[in-house]
């Protein structure tokens, strides 16, 4: 699915004294299966990935995902796109694991038996069958992130956008989750600080001060990012 980001600028608090522009004329087309997004805190990568699911709209420019303009056809974009947040606890809505996986199917007009069948298959696929009736908010961080991914994928999106989904996980869980992401059939756009998670990705973009500072293969862009991070930073960069 082609993601076309054309001359996009995004400003928070437009028209207020505290207006802050975090993306400046970003222009890129993404067609690869796995795309990584890296950059320091405040570089604009979280804003960029939110634009792809129409969670934010560009202040200037256009974002077209799979032929649908996020500003005018947000529902069509979201029905084809899944979004994974950094903190899965904020993404989980329902009290139990089974109910949360089923939540995305609520408005699909499916019968109860069909919903149950799909949910059972999804729980089995992600190793959550043993937790089906467990309180979702009491799972470990790693289990919650797997649940969030299972809940997103049950709606069968063509594209999955992820905003630092491994940031709150320990190293082992982060590695396991990265393997899970890499095995997905869907097109993936992954914003992360974990360069290891991007090994094998088709393309990586590095953001710096709201612009794409590097674009290429993981090794090459990773080296650029390391060099960027080795420069002295002020409080404004934190």
């Amino acid at each position: 699915m082609a993601i076309e980001v054309r001359r996009v600028t995004h400003t928070y608090g437009v028209g207020t004294p505290n207006a802050r522009t975090v993306l400046h004329g970003v222009d890129v087309v993404l067609t690869e299966h796995r795309v990584g997004i890296i950059g320091h805190n405040g570089s604009g990568k979280s804003t960029f990935v939110r634009l792809l699911d129409a969670l934010l709209l560009p202040t200037e420019g256009t974002v077209v995902v799979g032929g649908f303009d996020t500003a005018r056809q947000a529902s069509a974009v979201r029905s084809r796109t899944g979004f994974l947040f950094t903190d899965p606890d904020r993404q989980i809505i329902m009290p139990t694991v089974r109910e949360d996986v089923a939540f995305g199917l609520r408005r699909r007009g499916l019968g109860k038996d069909e919903v149950a069948r799909r949910v059972d298959a999804q729980l089995a696929r992600f190793g959550l069958a043993g937790f089906a009736d467990a309180p979702a908010h009491l799972l470990s961080g790693g289990q919650q992130q797997v649940l969030a991914l299972a809940s997103v994928l049950i709606t069968e999106p063509s594209l999955v956008v992820m905003d630092e989904p491994t940031t709150l996980l320990d190293l082992r869980n982060a590695r396991m989750f990265a393997e899970l992401i890499f095995a997905l059939d869907q097109q993936v756009v992954l914003a992360t600080h974990h360069l290891d998670a991007l090994a094998g990705f088709d393309r990586v973009l590095c953001f710096d001060q709201g612009r794409i500072a590097a674009d290429g293969a993981p090794a090459e862009v990773g080296a650029f990012y390391r060099e960027l991070m080795s420069r002295p930073a002020g409080v404004g960069d934190l």
Partner: peptide
């Protein structure tokens, strides 16, 4: 702030349409 976050999560899960 949490209300914003939940609202964003609901939108991301297609509950706004």
């Amino acid at each position: 702030r949490e209300a914003d976050v939940i609202g964003e999560a609901l939108v991301a899960r297609g509950i706004d349409d």
